[in-house]
């Protein structure tokens, strides 16, 4: 195994609200290797975004608070960097692509100017025409037609897909070694999604950046990622390679997620949801956070929170379920498709 590019250990993030403390991320640990794409899936509020925003110090504090944990990135702990050092990391070594391209670009500044800013922030001595040339090249790389004209245009003159391309271009301006994409296609319609994913793949090849792809779309995970983390209520409940996660999921939540998706090859009258609702992050149920909704739940689950333990599906596959062995042979809707 090569050295991990990023090693997060026991990250705990809390938010203080009037109703109590929200345990958004509760003891998350994972590693990311150079050049790989890691998908983080989970429903809204499972801590997907927060766990990555914490890395760049983008959690508003207060009300947020990073309680504990380390995030080693190239020999430094990102969670303990000074404000100034962190600023040098942001957009330079670690870049972020946001969910909504409609609101992530400043409406009163031209797109070219904003992309140029991303360069100038880190390299203030760069000459203006060199910056412009680089920005135009980047726009071309992400497939923005007429890049020269587009350079001077404003965000309102860009369509959603074009804006997300511009955002991707902005993220890769300084050739980061880690790219965090927070639901990059959620705000786009399906045909544009495909194009943007295509662009992201190309960009990854070009920059060789490791990528964390946060999404709740399992289809995107299957297409883009090497490895997957499944998060539930601030915990990692299962992790493994894309292949093993889809072929042999070993956590009831993962199975539930997959079964709740419609299958395009069959005419389905009813989808199969996971019963119940996600737990309140202020008042997590004791034991395994998933037990109130779990079809395997029994007394032990109500008392002990299961650790993320390796299962014998494949290298690096781990599940946080006391009874993961009972799931052997249990197929998800996608098992055959992957196998």
């Amino acid at each position: 195994m090569p050295e991990p590019l990023l090693a997060i250990d026991n990250l705990v993030v809390e938010f203080k609200t009037e109703d109590g403390i929200v345990h958004a991320v509760d003891g998350v640990s994972y590693e990311l290797y150079p050049g790989e794409t890691l998908g983080i899936v989970g429903e809204s509020g499972s801590g997907k975004s927060v766990s990555t925003l914490a890395l760049l110090g983008l959690i508003p504090q207060p009300p947020g608070r990073i309680v504990s944990g380390t995030a080693m990135f190239k020999g430094r702990d990102l969670l303990r960097l000074k404000k100034k050092e962190l600023r040098r990391v942001r957009g330079n070594e670690v870049a972020m692509i946001f969910q909504d391209p409609m609101t992530s670009l400043n409406p009163v500044l031209s797109v070219g100017f904003q992309l140029g800013e991303a360069i100038k922030t880190h390299f203030p001595d760069e000459k203006d025409d060199a910056v412009k040339k680089r920005v135009v090249d980047l726009l071309r790389l992400v497939g923005v037609p007429n890049a020269e004209t587009r350079f001077n245009q404003y965000p309102h003159e860009f369509s959603g897909g074009m804006r997300q391309r511009a955002m991707i271009a902005m993220a890769i301006t300084n050739s980061p070694s880690l790219l965090i994409a927070d639901e990059p296609t959620t705000a786009l319609d399906v045909t544009i999604q495909a194009q943007v994913l295509e662009v992201m793949k190309r960009v990854q090849q070009e920059t060789e950046a490791a990528t964390i792809l946060i999404t709740h779309d399992l289809g995107i995970v299957a297409e883009m990622c090497d490895r997957v983390l499944v998060m539930y209520a601030g915990h990692i409940v299962e992790t493994g390679t894309v292949e093993t996660i889809f072929r042999a999921p070993r956590h009831p939540y993962t199975i539930g997620l997959m079964n709740s998706l419609p299958k395009l090859t069959e005419d389905e009258e009813w989808l199969e949801p996971i019963t119940g609702a996600p737990p309140s992050l202020i008042d997590l149920p004791p034991g395994c956070p998933f037990h109130p909704r779990c079809f395997l739940a029994r007394e032990k689950c109500r008392q002990e929170n299961p650790p993320l333990a390796p299962v014998d599906v494949g290298a690096g596959h781990a599940s946080a379920c006391h009874f993961s062995e009972e799931l052997i042979g249990r197929k998800s809707k996608f098992s055959e498709a992957v196998a």
Binding site: L56, R87, R90
Partner: peptide, 12 residues
Amino acid sequence: EYVEAAKASGAG
């Protein structure tokens, strides 16, 4: 969000 995006790209 655009302010956050600018922050994420390293602006002080």
